[in-house]
Design a protein around this nucleic acid. Sequence first.
DNA 1: GGCAAATGTTAGGCTTAACGAACAATAATG
DNA 2: CATTATTGTTCGTTAAGCCTAACATTTGCC
Lengths: 227, 227
Amino acid sequence: MDGMPVSDLSSAAQDYLKLIWSATEWSATPVTVGVMAERLGVRPSTVSDGIKKLARQGLVAHAPYGSIELTDEGREHAVAMVRRHRLLETFLVDVLGYGWDEVHDEAEVLEHAVSDKLIGRLDRKLGHPTRDPHGDPIPTPDGKPHLPEGTQLSAAAAGGTVAITRISDADPQMLRYFTQLGLAPDTRLTVREHRPYADVTTIRLHGPDRDIDLGASASDAIWVVAV
Amino acid sequence: MDGMPVSDLSSAAQDYLKLIWSATEWSATPVTVGVMAERLGVRPSTVSDGIKKLARQGLVAHAPYGSIELTDEGREHAVAMVRRHRLLETFLVDVLGYGWDEVHDEAEVLEHAVSDKLIGRLDRKLGHPTRDPHGDPIPTPDGKPHLPEGTQLSAAAAGGTVAITRISDADPQMLRYFTQLGLAPDTRLTVREHRPYADVTTIRLHGPDRDIDLGASASDAIWVVAV
DNA sequence: GGCAAATGTTAGGCTTAACGAACAATAATG
DNA sequence: CATTATTGTTCGTTAAGCCTAACATTTGCC
Ligand SMILES: [Mn+2]
Ligand SMILES: [Mn+2]
Ligand SMILES: [Mn+2]
Ligand SMILES: [Mn+2]
């Protein structure tokens, strides 16, 4: 009933499934061919073909011109790939001393080359971590994602004191900027105000007690919980 | 003068170059299309085509029906790949606790996915090792292989006391057999006799003081130096 | 509701790496 | 040394993944 191991899929197929799963992890916007092409850096026609093949293999559900969803089997593979990716990122930071802004691209390639055995050993070596360096939850081997919580900073109530749970790892450039500002998972801060039409959120960093203005892309990339 | 980085070559090209280099590391037999096809598990026609392309790129010297040799540039890439492979094997054993018979296939895939940065970090983490788990020398970053020494056990003078320097990692099955017998790099033993037409070499293992008979394939896979 | 813009699909090509079949060259053997 | 066996090359084909260009569908706007 659970089909082939995830290692039997091509790198492209593995990335497609992982992307579909990840795209719906933190938001409910439907996954479209355009979104996927954009994020994968390929043309829409390439994705359209690729999805058609995944649909034929029963890994995604997709009617022409419709949005794309994972089947149960597709989701299993997707979660396995997310687990690989996040464990590898954790390894690169914890064991090899990479910066958190340097790990994404390396993991993006490695995730296709490692065996399940290696991932198991890595997990043990790292002490079964539950969060990657960006605060993203690491799914367990049987596919249960540790439930994420929190809201985007852009949507957090003004006046509240919060802690950062995760920061989207999509843009390494932005991660370097956050490092400079002193923003990372577990950082505490107070949301001072949202200025709606300027799309600016002002926060006060605890500790150094500095005020920082963040634009929309930045405050969308940061997820927080009340403390 | 040193052309593209080794990461720009396809996995197939990387494996071809590494194989050519490795084949001449411990013996002087010329590298032929047939030998390569055999070891890579592909058909001769595939190798013939592949070598032609590498020759066009100036990485190997090859006249039709002749044997295959690396150019200086080809050798640089080959050594870089051998370094990757052996550092990865060392990592798998030293850090992740793999057995020495389990690492070869995993490294064979990983070597194509790691960046130069990762290899550098790994080397530092491992304390700049000079030998891989099979006793094979790990080339330095600038391509100088630590010079190998020793002879095949099948060619070692009877009566001599020797230490194992390396054991060919080509056959994991054989490695497991050696583990059972207590044979590994640095094991000391005495060569008792060679029985030529039976192709059997008898050795006495120091410590346990056991006598062992080895066939030709086994005594060709083990390299020793006098101690 | 109709039309233009945005989005998605299809068709046709390219490249890489594999294969088998047919052929060419070299090596081994009587 | 002639013939056969072995080894290597060429060529046509296939399957992935990508591309562009042409076409189809859906969406959003007047
Ligand atoms: Mn990837
Ligand atoms: Mn991450
Ligand atoms: Mn390899
Ligand atoms: Mn080895």
